[in-house]
Design a protein around this nucleic acid. Structure first.
Lengths: 194, 194, 194, 194
DNA sequence: GATGAATGAGACTTCATTCAT
DNA sequence: AATGAATGAAGTCTCATTCAT
């Protein structure tokens, strides 16, 4: 039993993602987390002060891995529209391929946990870190070319459809192939045009 | 004699909406519900089999009041675009003015409770019951004029931004005045154009 | 509803016998009693101080009806042995034909309720009231003819088998026809012989 | 490490026997069990899935200890009658010395818990495992010597009086000395004779 | 450091009893 | 007198957290 795993913390976070995404925070007793992680209950409390801290830590981890994907550079030689579509397709692909990350985030944002950590933080938090097309849109640099809107409106018109579509995909209402994702991205792009 | 008082049921549902929206289902013990409703704990179980049934009943109530707003006829004399914008503004206004209803619905849909009652049910469930512009869009009647898309894509492009914007409004990131709501609606409308 | 039944009390006791015998005291909520009796919950408390008193009252009633059967005179012209067998068959027949009465009594005696009201009270309580053969046995009058034993031993040798056999009958392990009942009675009779 | 302590389980079963025997299943709240066992409420649920399982487990334990007594070999050299009397005296002695075991069993058999685990199971369940005299009687081997009766009648004539006498003893109506127990056993023996 | 047995606060639910109608 | 809606004490069970090993 005395498993001197070099990465017990990783095992715990991984088990947590699985259980939280599939069962919700409240149907994931710490004892079950421990069992799934192959770790003693007590060990969880060595790495995390309590269950809440574990949830917040998991959020940070998932949030970061999404940020990484989102922040990859887009081909800057392409027209802006294509860069935007590429970005959107990349985001949709990643989250559709990682349903647990997506469901965890949705659950987190719609729970008391996410009250302080607003959803905006994930995508709009640091405009300057955004990949080319997004940064230029949100920063207002393209104001002549596109509509000039308050950031939350940009945000809503871009990420709202992403979230909604992913939900339908998870629910099995639609399959996200390349064409579908492009359609959505193009719709969003049009929404921003003058 | 001594008939079950409709006031009491209303008081319970009302307290439930408040606590569920503000604290989440799991931080709203029945004892607190009862206290807030000014009712004995046991009385809740006279009106609802258990806590789950109370949650579902509250969903039905909230869902119906949203449906009512959504289903009001749009001025059919106006151009379709204006009808659409009117509809969107009406929906946004109502939910922004009833934040607890909105937060409850979001929470419900993102919980195991809402698994069968898919979000789609609320808005897309019965296309034929939709107000003019939505029904015509979703039914494909306008396929020549607009893009021809799978329903979930229409759905995502229209209600995704609504949900996202309301979240930002709740978070205090933006104030939803008439202009803002119209901007969003117009963006959505553009997103659907050929 | 205002049912001015002349015999609400009877209806309540009757419903109580049914529910207690079939479900046990603790799976027979007062509300269910009331429903089955066709009476308001509150009415039960007009006739009985509380649930305990209802149980004791029901015991008295059932106990009395058994006493009546037990106390019917045996043909005094017959030999004692035949009188005894007649008595035993009569008792067995009655209780086998009234399983709810029997199950209620068994349950009552084996519960805290029956602690003060000892089983003995039912059959041996008032020796002088017993029908001929029993009275003569218990009173010691037949001491020459039969074994001379302490009353509880007579009691055990006579009523123990009755109770045990009825239990097996209720459980469906045996059918109590005339021959079977006579066999038991004869066995008991032999048990008492010198 | 930290293995589940067998002492704790024993303490719980022991407390359960005491409370169940004295108060009945329904006047023995888990909280009281825990207190009497010197254990936290939650610990009971580590050892038993729920209260029902605890009751059944206690039955198994008590039943086994009675079986052990019952199954001890009788002096096979003695006449059958003496073997039988020895057996009866041993059974009576044990149960009279262990009143809680006796009261628990009686209560168990007369409750919904004992519906499937019929009383017969305890004594007649496995005829072949019975000590000499009983096995030979129940198996019909002595049919020439004794009356030939259906098993439930043997059962009633032998164990009925045992149960009844123990009840009277518990009630303080009689003291079970050697002579008394022998008398009962002899009575039962006679009851079986041709 | 790791473990998991032990704990008890607190959640949900039932039901005997009351009392306004 | 009769009713049944209302009540809350009390019961069963869960689970986050602690701590001895």
């Amino acid at each position: 039993m005395t498993d001197p795993s070099p990465d017990k913390k990783t095992a715990i976070l991984s088990a947590a993602l699985e259980l939280f995404a599939d069962n919700g925070f409240h149907c994931a007793p710490v004892s079950r987390l421990a069992h799934l992680a192959g770790v003693g209950v007590g060990s969880i409390y060595r790495y995390f002060k309590d269950k809440d801290e574990l949830i917040h830590a998991l959020y940070e981890q998932v949030s970061n891995s999404v940020q990484e994907v989102v922040n990859q550079p887009c081909g800057e030689a392409q027209p802006l529209r294509d860069q935007f579509v590429d970005f959107m397709v990349r985001l949709l692909s990643y989250l559709d391929a990682h349903p647990r990350e997506f469901r965890f985030l949705e659950q987190y944002y719609h729970s008391p946990f996410g009250i302080e950590k607003k959803r905006t933080e994930l995508f709009a938090g640091q405009v300057q870190d955004f990949p080319q097309p997004l940064a230029r849109i949100f920063s207002g640099e393209l104001a002549g070319e596109l509509k000039s809107l308050p950031i939350p409106l940009y945000h809503a018109l871009i990420f709202g459809p992403v979230s909604a579509l992913l939900n339908d995909s998870q629910a099995g209402l639609i399959t996200l192939d390349q064409a579908t994702m492009s359609s959505l991205a193009e719709g969003c792009w049009q929404a921003l045009q003058n």
